[in-house]
Write a protein that binds this DNA or RNA. Structure first.
Lengths: 330, 330
DNA sequence: CATCGGAATTGGATCGTTCAAGACGGCGAG
DNA sequence: CTCGCCGTCTTGAACGATCCAATTCCGATG
């Protein structure tokens, strides 16, 4: 059992004081070349690692960021969070931060958890996923002066705080243009009920692109709660209409999957495009819009560390472009 | 901006000493009823939370457990980890522990990460997912005396360490019995190359059940590397054989999905059963074997905290039963 | 009334690190 | 020659909790 290696052990081994070792770690430029080398050799030889708890107690910085892991809802969209988390953890590690998970049943308890995490572990910052209009969480965090970044725009005021997002409108626009280029005119959209930032954004890309092409979107829009069954129901409904749409764009892969089932039974030639490029889409050959999740996660960490290290001023938000992944269904 | 609340603040507010406050938190029974109540009121009034860094420095316990987040391989099985992580975090929180994530490109670097995490953050324990024969990680951890639990059996020596696992053989056995009950005899199995603990386990459940029913499994077994394409290829191969199998059991949903495509083109009536009950299976109506992931995660935390709190001796391993989820394909 | 014993409470030391302030030697300017 | 300064390094104190040993308090007992 090797003795515990502290900064004092290293200092003794390198014939310098504790503080000099600390300086080599935190402010190398103020230590003479030769001394620095000797200390670094001692660190390597002893396998010394700074004790974060002690460091944190003195500096108040924990080098820890937290992110919520949500219960997988319908499962289909679950792997989105999965990929995001992996990217986040990887980039954070490269920047010297570790990632802590937490769960929360609802928003009120999520805020209580912030309080707990900040009090108990002195977390340096938070990454929030999925913001909505008037999100109380961002208000709470901002009010406390806690650094955070959201994956998802603050839909009310784009300058309210740091954020990274994927341009959903650009995604559905690309999908719609793709279908227009294939000769379709009556392109329908199955989205979510109006009011959610993400849903309205995705809908607008479709609507504006149709309008720009001189097509009136009236009657081609359906609002569905997410899920396969809902997607199927609304697709059937659309296909049964008088002048039926000849193509479908959906706000999620779940909806698209349901729509696909309806299409295959009723009108197999009608193309369907989903959103999120989930494994399910890949498995069934569903054309879908892919979000650059690894990139998004990396930019979240970039922004957060920029705020934490305080070198630069408030960093600019990041809006990433999704990409259409063409498969069999369109 | 509220002042920082420490144990001293609470002590002052409750008119007692620091140590008494500490005792209320860590050994309530040695504090007089009335004093305890007063201290607890002060804690609530001030919103005091014990600083984990300070506690850790003195006690050496961080109340932190770590788990690796792997890059999603083919995406289909990704959500398995997702659900496991959520369960883990939730149960850990209830037990007063927090979950930290880490990534690692390979086993050697994973071990280096253990060293780093232990040195820097004094992690209390690890949860490993997916063990294999002669896993160097468990040997390293055991050698250092670091508490850990694996989700997955130590395939070489079942008493080597604490573990939780799902009985894969029981799962494939149930699937096979289900098909036998439906009148099938020539039931094939598409599994992984021999040598992996999980793969061999799942294969054995099918083989033994067939044998018990008086069916010779020879020629009904294919070894495939995981993936949709491989599943399709082997299924085609099987269906083209002289006495073709009338039903298929697969070691994963990926393989089953490929097999399903082959079946639908060649012999639509042949049932297919997958493994893991991923969202993809649910979406396409694939009958599959479901692992109780939330339960598994909870038991992992139970075992780990039992070891950490040291109240009981080495806790017994846990083997959970999976369940067949019947859908359209079988 | 003095003493005793055990429970309840207190003050000091400690964990490993960084901050603040100071020591030391050499060097250029006044 | 002295002073101040700079670069380099060292020492003491502090962060907030727990452990340990010492002390107070209290009723019971000799």
């Amino acid at each position: 059992m090797p003795e515990k290696v502290t900064i004092a052990t290293v200092a003794q081994h390198a014939q310098v004081s504790r503080q000099t070792v600390s300086n080599v770690l935190n402010a190398p430029h103020i230590v003479r070349e030769e001394t620095r080398r000797r200390v670094q050799e001692a660190i390597a030889a002893l396998g010394y690692r700074a004790n974060q708890a002690a460091r944190q107690m003195r500096t108040g910085r924990s080098k820890l960021i937290a992110v919520r892991i949500e219960p997988t809802r319908d499962g289909i969209n679950g792997s989105v969070l999965d990929r995001f988390l992996h990217g986040l953890t990887e980039t954070a590690e490269a920047a010297g931060y570790r990632t802590m998970l937490y769960t929360a049943a609802d928003t009120a308890r999520e805020i209580a958890t912030y309080d707990d995490l900040l009090g108990s572990y002195d977390l340096d910052g938070f990454v929030l996923t999925g913001t909505d209009h008037g999100d109380p969480r961002t208000a709470w965090l901002a009010g406390r002066g806690v650094p955070f970044v959201t994956f998802g725009r603050p839909w009310d005021d784009l300058d309210a705080h740091c954020w990274v997002d994927v341009d959903g409108a650009a995604g559905t626009a690309e999908a719609t243009r793709h279908l227009l280029a294939a000769g379709h005119r009556r392109i329908a959209f199955i989205g979510w009920p109006a009011g959610s930032g993400v849903g309205d954004d995705r809908c607008s890309g479709w609507r504006e692109t149709l309008r720009a092409a001189g097509v009136d979107p009236t009657g081609l829009h359906r609002e569905a709660t997410d899920g396969i069954a809902e997607g199927e129901r609304h697709a059937r409904d659309l296909l049964a209409a008088a002048p039926a749409p000849t193509a479908l764009v959906c706000a999620s892969d779940s909806l698209a999957l349901g729509a696909l089932q309806a299409v295959r039974e009723v009108e197999p030639a009608v193309p369907v495009i989903g959103f999120d490029d989930t494994p399910v889409a890949a498995a069934v050959g569903l054309t879908s819009i892919s979000q650059p999740l690894g990139e998004a996660a990396a930019r979240c960490v970039d922004l957060l560390t920029a705020v934490l290290d305080g070198t630069r001023g408030a960093p600019a938000p990041v809006l990433l472009q999704p990409a259409l992944v063409r498969r069999q269904t369109a």
